[in-house]
Each structure stands twice: as structure tokens, then as C-alpha cells.
């Protein structure tokens, strides 16, 4: 199924300066939110980014849609350098091709706009002047995301819709320009179970109908299992493991991935999970040491890990990469 390479990310890095209270202090600290992240997304693929809060998965997503500018590294869309795009027609073209779906359906829709105005906004901004065309494209998109008949939804306000319906509106807004690549940032984490499955199925369906690829960001590995073709696990700004979803989840190799997967509760009372072998708490990646980020919590780390730099990703099996010295 994987087609040609659509998105290539190499060495992507984003540091945020930490504000210090002491004035006159010149020494600045940085949060290494995303640190040297490399991956590719193929055409028609759903690439998952999983990890705990603060691991840098949302920052990575926002870098890809140019909400943030990276500190260094490169992003290529279809071979074209994305970071060089600054303004004008090329930026507009990029916006048309790359879109984002946000986590919170209650905060991602402007409460003072009607559903029509929300979904038509990208069209208006991209210069679709004809009102008739905008109306038709919005109605068409609303029916594609399951808000049918569209006429009954177009002129309502977000607060008149349920959480699931709002998230469908947000999906329609992202899809109305016909993007090739969509960053979906936890699109179902705020939704109830029975509603969530519907939105997940819609996203899978739209991949086929609209021929779109996703970067699917989630903290929920069970959701990732159902949504993603390949999966990258992030820990404190670093990708620690990448591979085919089922392989990563059923046979995790990195000690962090193993702990993460062992910690996920299973909706089966007869199932006994493996113990979670991980020490301590997650810390913020402020000026991290040069050795492996996971070492302070690692159950298998030793002195050689401490004297070596952070491990790079190694291909352990075909298409399955792990960043660990001990494997």
C-alpha cells in the first residue's frame, strides 16, 4: 500500500527558551521540545506519533503545518523544501496542501461564526470569491463528514452541536481545501467512547475518498492501533522507536515503549498485564544531558549508556527502528 514518499522530515529540532526570573542573567535555558526527529510519511499512509504529555508530539505536528518555525532540520513536502516557504503564493499553496485538525472541538471553532462561515473560511482566505461555489463546496464537505443534510447544519452555531458533530465540522474545515497531508492532533481524545469510534471511522474513510495522508498524534495506544499504519514513539523530544503499528504494539523493543504498552489498561478482566518496569517520573527536557534521555528511568541501562551520546535510530528488523544502545 505505501506509495511514494510524501513528507520527509530530517533532523527536525525545536528549542523553546525558558524564561528566567533573574534579570541580568544572560545564561538562557532551552526546552528541547523536539530534538533531531527524522521520519517519512508516504502517500495514503497514516503515520502515528505517540507518547506521554510533554514528549513533543504536538510541537512536531505544529512544526509540520508551519505554526512554529524549527530551530533546525528540514521538512520536505513532495521534494519541496517547506522551511524556505515564507509568504505569498507559495505559502498559500502550502496551506492548501497541508492542514491540521485540533484536539479540542469546543475551543477550535470560533463561537461567533456559523458552521458555514467556519468551513468556508479556508476557501475565503484562499480566494474562492464565488459565494455559490463556496456554498456548494461547504455543503458537499459537510455531507462527506456525515453532517447530513448539510442545510440543517450550515447555519447553526458551534454551541448548538454536540462534541462529535463539532469535531466533524473541524474535520470538514481541514478537508475543504482538498489537502494531501493532514496533521490530526488527538482528534478523538475529548470525545465519548460511542462517538469516538464514529469519528475514527470517518477519518479512515476520508483517507480513501479524498486520498489524504495523516500524521496522527495521540497518547492513546489503543486508538493508534486502530488508526495508524506505522507508529513512532516519542520520549522527551526524541523518537525512540518507529515501525509498523502492530509490530510496535505487540513486540515493542525499546524499554520505554515496553513500559508504555504494559501500562495501557486492557478492556478484558481476564487479561493480566505485564509489570511496568520503569523508574521515577517524566521530567521536562530543559538543557538535557548528552547521554540517552531515557537512561535515568531505564531498567536495562548501564555505564556504557552513560558514557555514550543519545543513541540514534537503528534498523533492528525490516522497517522497525529503535534508538537504544542495549539492543
Amino acid at each position: 500500500m505505501p506509495g511514494r514518499e510524501l513528507l520527509g522530515v530530517e533532523g527536525l529540532t525545536k528549542y523553546f527558551p525558558v524564561k528566567k526570573r533573574l534579570f541580568l542573567s544572560r545564561a538562557r535555558s532551552f526546552i528541547h521540545a523536539v530534538d533531531d526527529v527524522t521520519f517519512t510519511v508516504h502517500e495514503g499512509e497514516i503515520f502515528g506519533l505517540v507518547g506521554e504529555s510533554g514528549c513533543g508530539k504536538t510541537t512536531t505536528g505544529k512544526l509540520l503545518v508551519k505554526l512554529y518555525e524549527p530551530t533546525c532540520g528540514s521538512i520536505h513536502l513532495d521534494g519541496q523544501d517547506v522551511i524556505q516557504i515564507r509568504r505569498g503564493a507559495r505559502l498559500r499553496e502550502f496551506r492548501r496542501r497541508v492542514q491540521m485538525i485540533f484536539q479540542d472541538p469546543y475551543e477550535s471553532l470560533n463561537p461567533r461564526m456559523t458552521i458555514f462561515d467556519i468551513v468556508a473560511e479556508p476557501l475565503a482566505v484562499q480566494g474562492v470569491r464565488s459565494l455559490v461555489e463556496r456554498e456548494e463546496r461547504v455543503a458537499d464537505m459537510l455531507s462527506k463528514v456525515g453532517l447530513t443534510p448539510p442545510e440543517t447544519f450550515m447555519f447553526r452555531y458551534p454551541h448548538e452541536l454536540s462534541g462529535g458533530q463539532r469535531q466533524r465540522v473541524a474535520i470538514a474545515r481541514a478537508m475543504v481545501l482538498g489537502p494531501e497531508f493532514v496533521v490530526a492532533d488527538e482528534p478523538t481524545s475529548m470525545l465519548d467512547v460511542s462517538i469516538r469510534a464514529g469519528v475514527m471511522k470517518l477519518l479512515l474513510e476520508l483517507r480513501e475518498v479524498l486520498n489524504v495522508s495523516y500524521l496522527y498524534i495521540t497518547h492513546d495506544l489503543a486508538v493508534a492501533r486502530y488508526m495508524c499504519d506505522r507508529l513512532a514513539v516519542m520520549y522527551l523530544g526524541k523518537v525512540v522507536e518507529v515501525g509498523p503499528t502492530e509490530e510496535v504494539i505487540q513486540e515493542p523493543l525499546h524499554p520505554y515503549t515496553r513500559a508504555l504498552i504494559a501500562a495501557v489498561p486492557v478492556p478484558d478482566p481476564t487479561y493480566r498485564r505485564e509489570p511496568v518496569e520503569i523508574k521515577g517520573d517524566i521530567s521536562a527536557p530543559i538543557d538535557p544531558p548528552s547521554y540517552c534521555r531515557f537512561l535515568p528511568r531505564c531498567p536495562i541501562g548501564d555505564v556504557t549508556c552513560e558514557s555514550s551520546p543519545h543513541p540514534s535510530l537503528k534498523e533492528v528488523r525490516a522497517g522497525h527502528f529503535v534508538a537504544c544502545h542495549r539492543l
Binding site: 464514529g198 471511522k201 492513546d220 489503543a222 486502530y226 502492530e246 478492556p267
Partner: peptide, 23 residues
């Protein structure tokens, strides 16, 4: 319906069934 809509990381990966409508 609740059980069928809930994804699990273990066991057979059966298709998720969603419950139409709203509470």
C-alpha cells in the same frame, strides 16, 4: 455497543462499531 466501540491494544483487532446518534 460500548464494548464494541472500545479499542484495545491486545487481542484480535476487530472492527470498531460506532453507536449512531447522541445521548
Amino acid at each position: 455497543a460500548l464494548m464494541s466501540a472500545f479499542p484495545s491494544i491486545k487481542g484480535e483487532k476487530r472492527p470498531l462499531v460506532h453507536l449512531p446518534g447522541e445521548p
